[in-house]
Design a protein around this nucleic acid. Structure first.
Lengths: 155, 155
DNA sequence: TTGACATAGTTGCATTTGCAACAAATAACA
DNA sequence: TGTTATTTGTTGCAAATGCAACTATGTCAA
């Protein structure tokens, strides 16, 4: 059912396309894990991962680091707090700010998912081979450095 | 505002994270273009790009190629038709199917965006350097081959 | 032919999202 | 000070999304 191909534009050589396609494939696999196991959404896991990796910080800081939208972070934090994975504390020096920190339970989940993530990544490296994996990492880092200021968190 | 770092898990060396981060940076840039210029959403552009690149096909085929959800394609097609960018024709051999094809206007928009895309990509290659660009492409292709069957379309 | 099953596409509905508007606190500075 | 701008975080609302149910059409085989 295809005709009129348009060779001038190689969609499949278009970097944004490749990037999204790859990201989608890879993310879905890991997302399935934290979703099935802990009922976490993507955003929730992202917030959690940042707190787990970098320690307590405010919502805005999470936004800056992860490039997740304000509102989304706000709502994810609400859920994570309700579920006992993190606590919010009004900052004493600036009462607009809330310091977010993982609870014991939150850290436990984070640790468990870290292990899963490591395994996932190892399997991925095995699938595409160490050379491709290295190439990929190099390219991605270059991109992130070139495009974004600080880096962030994702699944 | 950071403490308690957890060196065991290098979030910033976690491939799904890098991938998403990079994809997000890059996509947003191009998305801004087709959104501002033609009011297209991401999905609409994806549908359009597939039709533009591969020629007329049915909605299901677009789903298969792009991994976009059925419903989403259906709705994007509705809008694109309303806006005069594509036509749907009941297939004569199977009246369940609709053959989708870009109109003249649709092809014009596609062509214009292709040019933008090419420029965008060139600028990106320049930013990160040809070596990194090549490495990235190699890695991404390996990934897509390893993980997904057919490839798709993205911004 | 009939009946069971598969496929293309749409629609209903609950959830998630983004954006703009907002309240509260703080900063800046005339 | 008083006044104006910024920053943090939340909420309202409309749009986008995913999933399941549904219609219409086709296929296969008894």
């Amino acid at each position: 059912m295809r005709d009129t191909p348009r060779p001038e534009f190689e969609l499949d050589a278009f970097m944004p396309y490749l990037l999204n396609q790859a990201a989608e494939h890879v993310s879905l696999g890991f997302a399935a894990t934290y979703k099935a196991e802990y009922g976490l959404t993507r955003t929730q896991w992202r917030v959690m991962a940042n707190l787990g990796r970098f320690g307590a910080m405010s919502a805005v800081e999470i936004c800056r680091i992860s490039h997740i939208e304000k509102t989304r972070v706000s709502r994810a934090v609400g859920v994570l707090e309700r579920d006992g994975y993190l606590t919010r504390t009004r900052a004493s020096d600036d009462r607009r700010r809330e310091d977010l920190a993982l609870t014991e339970a939150g850290r436990a989940v984070f640790a468990a998912l870290c292990a899963r993530g490591q395994a996932y990544q190892a399997e991925m490296a095995a699938r595409i081979g160490p050379q491709n994996f290295a190439a990929l990492e190099q390219g991605l880092r270059a991109l992130i450095v070139a495009y974004g200021e600080t880096v962030a968190t994702d699944d």
